[in-house]
Amino acid sequence: MIWRRMTGFPAWDYWTSPFEQLERMRREMDRLSEGLGRGLFREPMAGVFPLMNVTEDKDNYYVRAELPGLKADDLDISVKADTLSISGEKKISAEDENAQYHRREREAGKFSRIVSLPTQVDTGKVEARCTDGVLTVVLPKAESAKPKQIAVKTF
């Protein structure tokens, strides 16, 4: 483009479509900010172990957390109206005392976390299971919190 401008030709694409230029710039900016967002801001984090993903569908909330090495017995889960609390202890079993460690990256310790859910849940029907080191708690939404479908009548 510079070359064309230098040669004195009023470069065609430059003059004929300023909007296209703008569009290109906007796209470039989007790409940049997207890259920034991925690198710097990421997911919102409470900074409390364990990290949790909460999803919902029409009837339930699903709370998931990665807890490798934990069994259901090691966890203490309780629900009250709209809060779920999970606590427990991650243990790392003692190995052979003659063992020489090369790496020790896995951590042990206690944890406790409370999450409040957007609506009340049916505390009697909450289910939790631990499979392959992933805890899933299914919390059915309380009847009062479910959206009511309103039928539109035609007269």
């Binding site: 990665e66 807890l67 490798p68 052979d96 003659n98 790496r103 990256e105 896995r106 080191g133």
Partner: peptide, 19 residues
């Protein structure tokens, strides 16, 4: 995350791979 330790007889590797 992994733990690796060694004894006279073997090397043991523990790795957290939830899911």
């Amino acid at each position: 995350a992994a733990d690796i330790f060694e004894t006279d007889k073997e090397i043991t590797l523990l790795a957290d791979m939830p899911g």
